[in-house]
Design a protein around this nucleic acid. Structure first.
Length: 544
RNA sequence: GCGCCCGUAGCUCAACUGGAUAGAGCAACUGCCUUCUAAGCAGUAGGUUUCAGGUUCAAGUCCUGACGGGCGUACCA
């Protein structure tokens, strides 16, 4: 419909004597106030200045020049300072509703990103402990953006990037080793800055169960580190699965060293003159790219900083042929992004293929008080704890309901409320309620012929149909902005409009033709709610 | 100090990236269950969109400057 309007408006403008260059981008928007019609354009106002004419006059000429298809648009009116408002023909609505019903579980899919290969990297927590609430937003956001991309036609791969080398992991191994000794009654020194969480003791206990005291002979932490890593990864995968997230690949940072990719980056940087040695370290001339300081790539100890593998990793991803590499990370990592972009540019890649989705921090609020968390200090709340407390659906929903750009306050008390205070249930309830109605209708009546949808002309019915038809637009809007909360906003509006319909219009007990048509409308609503919830990774229950 | 993000109803947040009368949910108040799920609906109240300038037909949205908050600003990740 949008492209149809753009086309006829463009044609009308040409017939008014404007040439291509004078025609601005024709934007079609949905007016906030439904009394302003179903679609509107502001071209007349945009043209007011270049044409040195009153916008309302231009609008009048434009409307006269339009050749509208009456089966789609019933009216074009001029309003306000020069808006042109369009009203959809009712037959158009019924025809589209019919299409919706036959599309079923496919309804809402678009071709926006058809044929695009995407790699989305998210979670990417190093295996030093269970996933926490902080990782939760990353995981759910990343996965849902993947689903949005898939619904808009993209081919998506979910990747988890991790690092099992380095200081953090050594300390992890030492922590397990220390607990292992303690469990066997031996003297042990708990490492400085070690991991204090109870899960470390669990891992150590398992080692005692399996190997007895044989591991006391181990001199270093290596074996303990490996055992810890695999045990923790098992838990991480379980947690993710519980949240409806399944990774397609896990990428080990270490492989970049083995493949020589790291050395290659340094070599190319030197060749291009953007790397130099100083104080025993290797530096990246980030001042050439607008930063006020150069950045260390390899420390004087010989160990690279995380930026170097980050650059190599992005180059590697682009080598794999993806059209879009999307990284999801918290605001605290934002600083590495410009360096990575500069880096891959130096290496000759198209940096427009790399995109970052940054989200702000999560504050967990319980009983009106926030708490601070740290994995190392073990005063964190794990994602599993959170899901135990409020449930999987609620967890996903809460992480998604705010713009990634703003801080998220996760109120555990509100999330725990099974009732009216909890916004998730509003959507699920609407779905369950429809299913209940459909069960009832099916038990008392059978429809054989095609429904006559044109009997749906109550204002609540018409509003609801229009809302249903805007679902594909809502999906593509959320997808293109990488902002799942936009879809939640849409679903809330849909559920709300359904409930108005439910209160204004009865289904059971109406005369058969009307009952049939309304049943189809209810069915269509349930379909869209279920499709929307599927994108969010949340269940659409049939009963509540 | 510098960089990024944010500042909207008492609280938590929207507002389709510049459009028409700034909207929801909690909290408060008033009504509505012998009719398909009241986990619901209808209504009332609540605002100088932090402040001051600027850009234009039009600014919560864009630009400048203040003020307030978060995160960075490591040879940590």
């Amino acid at each position: 419909m949008e492209s149809y309007l753009q086309e006829i408006i463009g044609n009308a403008l040409k017939s008014m004597g404007l040439d291509e260059g004078q025609i601005p981008e024709i934007k079609i928007e949905t007016p906030r106030d439904p009394s302003h019609g179903d679609a509107a354009t502001n071209v007349a106002m945009q043209l007011a200045k270049p044409l040195r004419n009153n916008p309302r006059k231009i609008a009048e000429q434009l409307v006269d020049a339009l050749s509208l298809d009456p089966s789609k648009i019933s009216a074009a009116e001029i309003a306000g300072p020069g808006f042109i408002n369009f009203r959809y023909a009712e037959n158009y609505l019924y025809a589209e509703l019919k299409k919706l019903l036959s599309s079923g579980t496919e309804y809402g899919k678009t071709a926006d990103n058809k044929g695009i290969k995407c790699l989305v990297e998210f979670v990417s927590a190093n295996p030093t402990g269970p996933l926490t609430v902080g990782h939760g937003r990353n995981a759910v956001l990343g996965d849902t953006v993947c689903r949005l991309l898939e619904w808009t036609g993209a081919d998506v791969q979910r990747e988890y990037y991790f690092n099992n080398a380095g200081r953090q992991m050594r300390v992890l191994g030492q922590s397990v080793q220390a607990r292992y000794k303690e469990l066997l009654g031996k003297e042990s020194e708990f490492p400085e800055g070690g991991y204090e969480g109870a899960y470390i003791i669990d891992i150590a206990q398992k080692l005692v169960d399996e190997h007895g005291d044989k591991l006391l002979a181990e001199n270093d932490e290596k074996l303990f580190k490996e055992k810890a890593e695999s045990a923790i990864f098992v838990e991480i995968r379980k947690t993710l699965e519980r949240m409806n997230i399944v990774m397609d690949s896990f990428f080990n940072e270490h492989s970049l060293y083995e493949s020589g990719a790291i050395d290659q980056v340094i070599a190319t940087f030197r060749e291009k003159g953007v790397a130099y040695d100083s104080d025993g370290a290797v530096w990246f001339k980030t001042t050439d790219f607008g930063k006020d300081q150069d950045t260390v790539l390899v420390k004087s100890s010989g160990e690279p900083t995380y930026r170097l593998p980050d650059i190599a990793y992005h180059a590697e991803k682009l080598d794999r042929g993806f059209d879009l590499c999307l990284d999801v990370f918290g605001a605290d990592h934002i600083d590495t992004y410009p360096d990575v972009m500069s880096g891959i540019e130096v290496l000759g890649y198209d940096k427009s293929k790399v995109e970052v989705l940054v989200y702000q921090f999560v504050t967990l609020v319980k009983d009106g008080k926030p708490y601070k968390m740290s994995t190392r200090k073990a005063n964190f709340v794990t994602l599993d704890d959170l899901m135990d407390e409020v449930g999987e659906d609620v967890t996903r929903f809460f992480f998604l309901m705010r713009s990634p750009n703003t801080h998220l306050e996760f109120d555990v008390n509100q999330a725990k409320e099974a009732g009216e205070k909890n916004p998730v249930f509003y959507l699920q309830y609407a779905h369950a309620r429809i299913q209940s109605i459909l069960r009832k209708v099916n038990s008392i009546e059978t429809f054989s012929d095609e429904p006559n949808l044109s009997v749906l002309n109550h204002p609540s019915e018409v509003t609801l149909i229009k809302k249903l038809l805007s679902f594909p637009g809502a999906v593509s809007n959320a997808a293109s902005h990488r902002e799942p909360h936009r879809l939640i906003t849409y679903l809330n509006e849909l559920a709300s409009e359904f409930t108005s319909f439910y209160h204004d219009c009865r289904i059971v007990g109406e005369e058969k033709e009307l009952m049939h048509a309304r049943t189809k409308l209810a069915e269509a609503t349930a379909r869209v709610l279920a499709n929307g919830l599927t994108i969010l990774g949340i269940s659409a229950p049939d009963r509540m």
